[in-house]
């Protein structure tokens, strides 16, 4: 009798579990992120990393010194990079207007100090162009999802001919 009662309870629990697995049929994806609004404002440079794209693409490694990274290194301390702040201004519709850079003693990594800026796609920006007259610096936005957390990574690649050889990742935090 006791055994039958246990089986009965187990069966009831299984039924309850199966019932709870019903699809809720809610297919809404939530509100889209307004990346342009997230980009607007002042960003202070926190850290810089440098990637040797040749070493990376060829999987350079040193088995005798596995602790030494042959492809990427943090260069934040090489120069006063963290002096730098970049500010992106937008109009009422979140379209890019002007930018300004305060370098302090940091190297002039974007070459330009002020001008206008553009993105490749207003809904899902992947790159930013900093423009001043005929001079343009193009950077890629890395880890776009981090924009909502107040963090932004701008990437600059250097080329030898048509071959990308070095990449810099500039990691900013919103002021």
């Amino acid at each position: 009798m006791k055994k039958t009662f246990k089986y009965f309870i187990a069966l009831g629990l299984c039924g309850a579990l199966l019932y709870s697995c019903k699809p809720d049929n809610d297919f809404t994806a939530g509100q889209p992120q307004n990346r342009m609004a997230q980009l607007a404002g002042a960003w202070k440079l926190q850290s810089v990393s440098q990637i040797d794209l040749i070493a990376k693409s060829n999987n350079f490694s040193d088995p005798s010194r596995p602790e030494v990274d042959l492809t990427t290194q943090d260069i934040t301390a090489v120069a006063p990079f963290t002096d730098m702040t970049i500010t992106f201004a937008e109009d009422a519709t979140n379209a890019p207007t002007t930018f300004s850079v305060i370098y302090g003693n940091a190297p002039k990594i974007f070459k330009l100090s002020a001008g206008t800026w553009k993105v490749d796609n207003l809904t899902a920006p992947g790159s930013i162009k900093l423009i001043n007259g005929v001079d343009t610096t193009t950077t890629l936005i890395g880890a776009v999802n981090n924009l909502s957390l107040g963090m932004m990574t701008l990437q600059l690649k250097k080329y030898q001919g048509v071959k990308a050889v070095t990449q810099y990742n500039y990691n900013f935090k919103k002021n």
Binding site: Q50, A79, P107
Partner: peptide, 24 residues
Amino acid sequence: APVVYVPAVYRLFPSRMNQDDAIT
């Protein structure tokens, strides 16, 4: 230039550089 890592007394990072690069 090697395409595999070859241990040597000196190693420059990055492998391609100009006067604006951080060089180690």
